[in-house]
Design a protein around this nucleic acid. Structure first.
Lengths: 158, 158
DNA sequence: AAAATAATGCTATGCAATATAACAGTCAAT
DNA sequence: ATTGACTGTTATATTGCATAGCATTATTTT
């Protein structure tokens, strides 16, 4: 029942309790926090954070998409995309165009500069991922991606 | 270059852009957010959220630990643990005891009630994890845990 | 055709998690 | 004996995400 020696506390680095280390949710949170921190650091060179990057990539890949649909895809609140779009637009990365058939909708189209920047961001984020995943084989990375997708239910094709 | 049909936007559920689906960080964030949301919901029955639970589990498993060391283990700020401990203490889940050798340090010990509650929380969170991971075999769960641990560097023993 | 329902983009506001800065008291090291 | 480091703490900032509501426009139901 005693177990731990109680020694000097400031020795740093002790392990997480077993009960937590057994929980996948715990590892998910730690890994995700670590990733988000470093991903944002990597993207600083492009002057964005992960969310604006995701929005721009979505516009680039689905030209003519509406902001509401981006929100559905990225599961974010319509209210929260507003400042993100405002900034991307101010930087000239996409344009809004009125939908001819539905006056509520603005369709978003990437500019040439937007496509360039999206490519640059992809380069930065890919380098970051490579660093993060250096300890895993390609097959393992695929497995990991697949399992994570199953958890939040985007195909995971299993 | 055209690709997507542009159709009605409100059809819901479209897939994330390929560029994002290739990123493990993207899946990490989505999976972690999903987990955190449901874990907190599951823990509502015990009147805690994930962080206070983690703190209590740590005290329970390492009796006599100091708050500073909990912060080092869970990688949280010393400032932020204060209200967490205040609440757990108010609920009678642990006790503070002065360290005989170092007047700066308070050593934290779980009460009987604290151990009970910790057990109860573990039950709730385990049920939640079981639901979350229903689509994965036990071997896959072990693999997932191992890979996540490698990412943020808590053994992962690989 | 009228009325009810719902979607869009948006403002304003809230909350929870995490981060930063500073402090007094205590201990360790030179 | 001074310097530097660590503890627990207060106060405050920042960030990400959530909620509520609004005017406008479309769709659906009656």
């Amino acid at each position: 029942m005693s177990g731990e020696p109680l020694k000097k506390a400031q020795e740093s680095a002790a392990e997480s309790p077993r009960a937590l280390r057994d929980l996948i949710g715990y590892h998910l949170k730690r890994a995700s926090a670590w990733d988000l921190h470093n991903a944002n650091a990597a993207l600083e060179a492009a002057g964005v954070r992960t969310v604006p990057m995701s929005v721009l990539l979505t516009i680039t890949e689905k030209p003519g998409i509406s902001s509401a649909e981006i929100c559905r895809i990225l599961r974010m609140q319509r209210a929260n995309i507003v400042p993100v779009l405002a900034e991307l637009e101010a930087r000239g990365l996409f344009l809004r165009e009125a939908d001819p058939d539905d006056n509520r909708i603005q369709r978003l189209f990437p500019t040439a500069k937007g496509r360039e920047e999206a490519q640059r961001m992809l380069g930065l984020i890919s380098a970051h991922e490579e660093r993060m995943l250096a300890g895993l084989t390609m097959a393992e990375r695929d497995e990991l991606r697949r399992m994570l997708a199953i958890i939040w239910r985007e195909d995971g094709e299993g």
